[in-house]
Design a binder for these strands. Sequence first.
DNA 1: GTGTTTGCAAAGTGTTTGCAATTTA
DNA 2: TAAATTGCAAACACTTTGCAAACAC
Lengths: 135, 135
Amino acid sequence: MRPYSQVLDQLRNAGLRPTRQRLALAKLLFENAPRHVTAEGLHGEAQRAQVRVSLATVYNTLHQFTEAGLLKEVVIDANRSHFDTTTTEHGHFFFEDESRLQDIPDGQVELVSLPDLPEGTTVKSIDVVVRLNNS
Amino acid sequence: MRPYSQVLDQLRNAGLRPTRQRLALAKLLFENAPRHVTAEGLHGEAQRAQVRVSLATVYNTLHQFTEAGLLKEVVIDANRSHFDTTTTEHGHFFFEDESRLQDIPDGQVELVSLPDLPEGTTVKSIDVVVRLNNS
DNA sequence: GTGTTTGCAAAGTGTTTGCAATTTA
DNA sequence: TAAATTGCAAACACTTTGCAAACAC
């Protein structure tokens, strides 16, 4: 839950100018958070909301927001990149038939323990995905 | 651990003719199992082993083997498809800096419990990925 | 022989990039 | 007005596909 009002500050802190496009995309993303988007999907939404923004800019913006810590990229789907407004650690359901992502409520997918790490490595993230089929 | 000798039978059972290309790829895959490959990587290996096989055939073969249950596709990397000779449930380390995959030993990444599933769904698989950075 | 498989090259898909025009500070 | 950002179209990387030739049974 990241109030949209904080977003402007976070853009500034990340050295990102609050352009019309970024603000519009941030609004779509964070006023409806928590949520998951693909570039294509967010672009379509923007168009439907009468926001003129190119697909290239949507891609750039998603990556910039990710670098700024506003989003987390979720690698789950061989065909498409997904982004999540929730950046804290949590698991995902992935509906294979619809290529749709859904958060697993906190506390429902804890690991028994952290595995022994290979020498000279640090954990970047731990991703738990429960892949689901209909029926 | 799937002995290479079983592979011929499994190809037959899957209705796949044991062609020169399939046998050669199966040999590379299962004589060195457990292991992880990408299409590009396996193709390179085949060439180095003097096996003439096209990249298109490598792709086709990897998918056919996956459908036949000989391999499991691991979606972990936004840029490339990875395949694993171990088809039973287990976690993975992913070395982000090298785009390399490694199995987590059995028992080191168990979940405390299965989360409540959304209505009308069944679990296809549960994927646990520990993403690692060097140092 | 008949149906399957292969390899090539072309097409496809999602994503990134170069650069001129535009916008922001 | 200097630097950042956008949008377009082209380029890209990986993957899939159509089809004629080669192969398996």
